[in-house]
Write a protein that binds this DNA or RNA. Structure first.
Lengths: 242, 242
DNA sequence: CCAAAAGTGTTGCTATTACACCCATGG
DNA sequence: CCATGGGTGTAATAGCAACACTTTTGG
């Protein structure tokens, strides 16, 4: 059973880069300019080089294709190995989730943002952000098996919002935010509204009790009563309910 | 960017096969008979053939290396891509969790079972099952990065026990079991005791309310009062708390 | 002083826990 | 008839949702 006896497949990483735009969960896509799936939208991806790990490939992808340097939160989603998922040849893809707090961090022109209209079941509705075109399409017209990836990723985000600190990765300023800001993120991911008062009282308190955030002061700008401000201090530790 | 421009790595699947033995979570390992990590224990694995998916490779592994035919529950755990995780050459591994209800289903002599002594933090203590040798070792002496895999897999099992029906996969007879049997499995995975009465009343009731199980009758064997018996009927649907 | 924004309290419902009690069987 | 295993009831507690109330600011 020598190693060389086995033919091995191509391996790529694909990145599902999420952000919150206008109170809605959004994903960063690119229109493919070559076959297969030419002119269809897809998540950005790249082949893994022989001298890098999958995480390394994701970092390179973030830097080269998205222009994102520095510390971007990523985590492995799942690996997709269907023999026919790439019509050219056998290609395995390791999908990663990425999160950035601000869509404007992506400055390259070939990437486009789409908000995700939370469909109850079936396919997601994707709505182009920003250019006033109101262009939209349904996620099952994504290239490759990227519709499946998107579904699994959204599920993962929703699940982890319940028992980890993943939603803090969406904060534009982790060192100064209000309950309202965090609630907007929470609702965007979950896909439904939660009561304002209760969110402050229970959710924020739970975060404080678990040492994830600190109350640091209050805003003095805005129309109404100044909101308390918080700072995220949790490291990488998981926070599991009770 | 033609496909052929990229050198691609070897890809394997590794299987973490779990069962419950004597009320304790257990894993199926094999002593490696060749380099690298010769004479160390490791999870069984195999290279992915060019005409099969990762799931296909796992099925082949189950059949050829473990002698397990038929419907064995498996799910993808995570993909490991460190460049140096295999000292020979660059090898990516897609790790899978497998669950069988009875260790005796594995009849091949080269596989050995070890119970996992739930360590709070750090490494697991693995204890050889069955031959009276009382041999044991610490999980960080597993070959490759299999210690890390084991940790991640146990975490996954514990998490999914809370909100899925994964513990029913451990049942020796899914069509006839008692609350006591299910509780033993539950405790083995979680690693701590739960109150007997409450488990029957709440846990079993929740399963019933979610359509996962049905009360079917009662045992008439055993020393004390005959226990109610249940049958697992849930398909593949997730059961998420409230 | 009033509207707007945001933090706190009150109430009732539900889930969880601990523990006791009663039930059915084998020896 | 008693030890043993197993179901069910109860009370105390914790958590959650709805909603009303209060606080603070800008005009």
């Amino acid at each position: 059973m020598a190693l060389a006896d086995y033919k091995h497949p191509y391996v790529t990483v694909d990145l599902l880069l999420f952000s919150i735009i206008d109170g809605k969960l959004a994903i960063c896509l690119t229109k493919r300019d070559e076959e297969p799936f030419k002119d269809m939208y897809a998540m950005p991806g790249t082949f893994i080089h022989e001298d890098e790990s999958a995480e390394g490939a994701v970092e390179r992808l973030l830097a080269d294709r998205l222009g994102l340097e520095g510390n971007i939160y990523t985590e492995q989603l799942q690996t997709f190995t269907d023999i026919t998922r790439d019509p050219r040849e056998r290609v395995i893809s390791i999908a990663y989730i990425g999160i950035i707090p601000d869509m404007n961090m992506v400055k390259v022109p070939w990437m486009e943002w789409f908000t995700i209209a939370s469909s109850n079941v079936g396919y997601e509705k994707l709505l182009k952000v920003g250019d006033g075109s109101n262009a939209s399409f349904i996620s099952n017209s994504l290239g490759f098996d990227h519709d499946e990836m998107l579904h699994i990723a959204i599920d993962r985000l929703r699940g982890k919002t319940q028992y980890t600190d993943i939603l803090f990765k969406f904060l534009k300023d982790q060192k100064c935010f209000t309950a309202a800001i965090l609630r907007e993120i929470y609702q965007a991911i979950i896909g439904k509204e939660v009561n304002r008062g209760n969110f402050t009282k229970y959710q924020m308190n739970t975060y404080i009790e678990n040492g994830l955030i600190n109350k640091i002061g209050s805003t003095s700008v805005g129309r109404g009563r100044p909101a308390d401000t918080y700072a995220y201090i949790g490291g990488e530790k998981l926070w599991i309910r009770s």
